[in-house]
Simulated scan of single mutants.
Amino acid sequence: MDENQFSIVDESGNEILCDIVLTFESEQFGPKAYVVFSPVGEVDEDGEPVYDAMIFEESDDVEGGKLLPIESEEEWEMVQEVFNTFQDEEDEE
């Protein structure tokens, strides 16, 4: 695993390797850090990568920190807007 990847464990106990696509911080919903990621090898019906996002919280109890779910629709919309802007900038390059 490199610094641009991390593993999560799903509800069935399976370890899933994920590529980090984007990290950013925002003050809009309190000072929070977010990570947008793509499970390695997971694609949608069109063959496009699947993306997800979570809140990243540093923790002394958990090595590397912990991921928390994004629970409000407004927060999801903000994350999606930041991700869409990132993708547009990547497409321009």
Rank of each mutant, 00 (worst) to 15 (best):
E57A: 15
C18Q: 02
F24G: 09
G41A: 00
S59P: 05
D88L: 15
E71Q: 02
I70W: 11
G65V: 00
M1W: 12
D61N: 10
G47D: 01
Q80T: 02
E25H: 01
E48F: 12
V62I: 09
Y51C: 04
D19C: 07
F6S: 06
V9W: 03
V62W: 02
V21T: 12
V21I: 15
E42C: 01
N4D: 06
S59M: 09
E73D: 08
D91I: 03
F24N: 12
S72N: 11
S72V: 08
I20K: 01
L68I: 15
D52K: 04
P69L: 12
E93T: 11
G30S: 05
K66G: 03
E63P: 12
I16C: 06
D61W: 10
D52I: 00
I55P: 09
F6V: 05
E58Q: 11
E42W: 05
G64I: 09
Y51I: 07
E57R: 15
V36D: 01
S38L: 03
V9Q: 09
V79S: 08
E75A: 01
I55F: 09
S26Y: 04
F56S: 08
P39N: 05
A53F: 13
E92R: 14
E93Y: 12
S12C: 07
V79H: 10
L22I: 05
F37A: 06
E27T: 11
W76H: 14
D88P: 11
E73T: 06
N84A: 08
D88C: 14
C18V: 01
A53T: 10
P31R: 13
E25Q: 02
M54S: 15
E92G: 10
G13P: 06
G30K: 07
M1Y: 13
E92H: 12
P69D: 14
W76D: 13
V40K: 01
S59G: 03
F24L: 09
S12W: 08
L17Q: 15
I20S: 00
P39L: 06
I55Y: 07
G30N: 04
F83P: 13
F6W: 07
V36T: 01
V43W: 00
E25C: 01
M78I: 08
V50E: 11
V9K: 10
V62C: 02
D91R: 02
M54F: 13
F29P: 02
G47E: 02
E81M: 14
G30V: 03
I70R: 10
E15H: 11
I16L: 07
P39H: 07
D10L: 06
Q80V: 01
I8H: 04
G30M: 02
F29D: 00
D60N: 08
I55W: 06
E3T: 11
P49D: 00
G65I: 00
A33W: 09
N14V: 09
L67C: 05
D10Y: 08
G65K: 02
E74A: 13
V9R: 09
E3G: 10
E81K: 14
G41W: 00
D61V: 12
V40R: 01
D44M: 02
V50N: 12
E74F: 10
K32N: 05
V79E: 09
